[in-house]
Computed example of a mutant assay.
Amino acid sequence: MYNKKIEIDETIMKITSDTNPDFLENYVSNERDLLKDYCRNNNEFLESHSPIKFEKGPKIAKIMDDASKIANIGPMGAVAGTFSEITLNQLIEKGSSYSIVNNGGDIAFINKDKDKSVICGIYAGNSNISGKIAFKFKSSKKSYGLCTSSGTVGYSFSYGRADAVSIIAERASIADTLATSIANAVKGPDDSNAVEKGLEKAENYKEHFIGGIIIVNDSIGTIGKPPEIIAIEKGDLDEYYQDTIS
Rank of each mutant, 00 (worst) to 15 (best):
I230W: 01
I168L: 14
Y38W: 09
N3P: 11
E25M: 07
Y241T: 00
I63L: 10
S149F: 04
N193T: 15
K112M: 09
A169G: 01
I223Q: 01
N128D: 12
I223C: 10
E200T: 13
E25T: 14
A175W: 02
P75N: 05
I210Q: 12
N89F: 04
F83L: 09
G57W: 00
K69Q: 00
S139L: 02
T177S: 06
K94S: 09
S99P: 01
N204F: 00
K94D: 09
H49I: 13
D236S: 15
K136F: 08
K201F: 07
K114L: 05
E7F: 08
G235P: 05
N193W: 04
L34E: 06
E196S: 15
A202C: 13
S166Q: 05
P21I: 10
D163C: 05
A185D: 02
L237F: 09
G188W: 09
H49Q: 05
P21A: 11
K136T: 08
I213N: 02
N30Q: 13
A179S: 15
I70W: 03
L199D: 12
S219K: 10
G160A: 02
E239R: 14
M64G: 01
P51C: 05
G131K: 11
I119L: 14
S96R: 01
I229R: 01
A108Y: 11
S130T: 08
I214A: 02
K53G: 06
V165L: 07
D18V: 04
D18A: 01
S50R: 02
I214Y: 01
G121I: 08
I15Q: 03
D243T: 14
G125K: 07
D113R: 07
N204M: 11
K5D: 13
K112E: 13
I6E: 10
L34T: 04
A194K: 12
D22F: 06
V195D: 08
A71M: 04
D22C: 07
P227T: 13
I100P: 04
Q90C: 05
A185N: 12
C39V: 01
S139Q: 08
Y155V: 14
I129H: 11
S158A: 14
V28T: 11
E239L: 14
G131C: 11
N30D: 14
S173I: 04
V28G: 09
D243Q: 13
F83G: 10
I52A: 00
F157W: 12
I167E: 03
N3D: 09
G160S: 08
I230R: 00
Q90R: 10
P51S: 03
K136M: 12
N126I: 00
S173K: 01
R171E: 04
Q90Y: 07
S96H: 03
N41G: 07
F109H: 06
D236M: 15
L88W: 02
L91T: 07
K225D: 11
D163K: 03
E200M: 13
N20L: 01
D106Y: 01
G145A: 00
I63G: 02
P58E: 10
S84I: 06
K14E: 04
D218L: 12
E200N: 15
M13S: 05
D190G: 12
E93I: 00
A172E: 13
D238V: 10
E200V: 13
F83H: 09
D37G: 14
I230D: 08
S139M: 00
N128T: 06
A78C: 00
P75A: 05
F135A: 08
R32P: 12
Y27P: 13
R161T: 06
